[in-house]
Measured scan of single mutants.
Amino acid sequence: QNEKLANELKSLLDELNVNELATGSLNTYYKRTIKISGQKAMYALKSKDFKKMSEAKYQLQKIYNEIDEA
């Protein structure tokens, strides 16, 4: 289960640069939040902690959705 979550989180991290570029014309909230979420996700992957990875995955998905809707 950890392996599956780690792969999903890696996949979301692969999209980080594209989504970060998409924040160029948006409010600074999005820029700041996506950077923080990305850092948390990288830390969670290194720690291999299921709870941290779950939270990081949720945060990344949430900010990606917010950027898409903005």
Rank of each mutant, 00 (worst) to 15 (best):
S47T: 13
L21N: 06
L26T: 03
Q39F: 09
I36P: 00
K10D: 02
S11D: 09
G24P: 04
A70D: 04
S54C: 13
K51V: 10
F50I: 08
K48L: 12
N65A: 13
G38D: 01
K48H: 06
K46A: 13
A56Y: 02
A6M: 12
K48T: 04
T33E: 11
S11K: 14
V18H: 11
L12F: 02
M53L: 03
G38N: 04
K4W: 08
L60G: 01
G24I: 14
N7A: 13
G24A: 14
K46F: 09
S25K: 12
Q59A: 11
A56H: 01
E69Q: 13
Q59F: 14
D14F: 08
A70E: 04
L26I: 04
E8F: 05
K51D: 09
L16G: 01
I63L: 07
S37H: 11
T33N: 08
L16Q: 02
S37Q: 14
K46M: 13
K4Q: 12
D49F: 02
D14T: 08
N65H: 12
N27T: 11
L12N: 00
S37P: 01
K35T: 07
A70C: 10
Q39H: 06
I36C: 10
K10M: 08
K46R: 10
A44E: 02
E20Q: 10
K40W: 11
E3L: 09
Y58K: 12
Y43V: 14
I36G: 03
E66C: 11
A6W: 15
S47K: 05
E66S: 05
N65R: 15
S47F: 06
S54R: 12
S37Y: 15
Q61H: 04
A44W: 02
K31D: 03
N27G: 13
K40N: 10
A41V: 03
R32C: 14
T23I: 07
L21A: 10
E20W: 15
G24D: 12
Y29K: 05
K52P: 01
N17M: 14
L16I: 06
N2K: 12
A6F: 14
N7W: 11
A22N: 08
K46Q: 12
T33S: 11
A22Y: 08
S54Y: 11
N65W: 12
N65Y: 10
T33K: 14
Q1S: 09
M53F: 02
S54A: 12
E20D: 07
N19E: 05
D49Q: 04
Y29H: 05
A22P: 05
K40M: 13
L5R: 01
E69P: 04
R32F: 10
L45G: 01
L26Q: 04
Q39Y: 09
E55I: 11
A6D: 02
L45Q: 02
N17W: 15
K4Y: 06
S54T: 13
T28A: 14
V18K: 15
N17S: 14
N65T: 10
E69L: 13
D49N: 08
S37I: 15
N17R: 14
A41W: 03
F50W: 08
K62Y: 04
S47Q: 06
K62W: 06
E66T: 04
E20S: 09
D14Q: 11
L45C: 03
A44V: 02
L5A: 02
Y30M: 07
L5E: 02
E55N: 06
S47H: 05
E20V: 15
K51C: 12
A44G: 01
A56V: 03
L60C: 02
Y64M: 12
L13N: 01
K35V: 08
Q61F: 05
I63T: 04
Q1D: 13
S37G: 05
K57P: 00
K62Q: 08
K48A: 06
F50P: 10
L26H: 04
G38Y: 14
I67E: 01
Q59D: 07
Y58R: 11
L26Y: 04
N19V: 14
S47V: 08
A22E: 04
E55K: 07
K62H: 06
K4F: 07
E69F: 11
L16R: 03
E69W: 12
K4H: 07
Q61C: 09
K31E: 04
L26V: 03
L26M: 08
K52R: 12
D68W: 15
L60I: 03
K57H: 05
E66L: 11
L12E: 01
Y64E: 01
N17T: 13
L60T: 01
T28M: 13
K10A: 08
K35C: 12
L13R: 00
I63M: 03
S11N: 10
K4I: 11
A70H: 05
D68E: 13
S37T: 13
L26R: 04
Q61T: 07
L16K: 02
Y43C: 13
I63H: 01
N65I: 08
G24W: 09
I34A: 02
E8A: 06
N65P: 01
A41R: 00
S11Q: 12
N17P: 13
A22W: 08
K31S: 07
K51G: 08
I63F: 03
N27S: 14
E20I: 15
N19M: 15
T33I: 14
K31M: 07
M42G: 04
N27K: 08
D49L: 04
S11R: 14
Q39E: 10
N7Q: 13
A70Y: 08
K10P: 00
L45E: 01
E3A: 08
L16V: 03
K57M: 12
Y43S: 13
E69K: 13
N65K: 14
S37F: 14
K31R: 10
E20F: 15
Y30G: 01
Y30H: 03
Q59W: 15
I63E: 00
N2I: 15
E55R: 09
Y43G: 07
L12I: 03
K40C: 11
K57E: 01
K62N: 04
Q39L: 14
L12A: 02
E3V: 07
A22K: 15
K10E: 06
N19C: 15
A44I: 02
A56L: 04
K51N: 10
L21E: 08
S47Y: 06
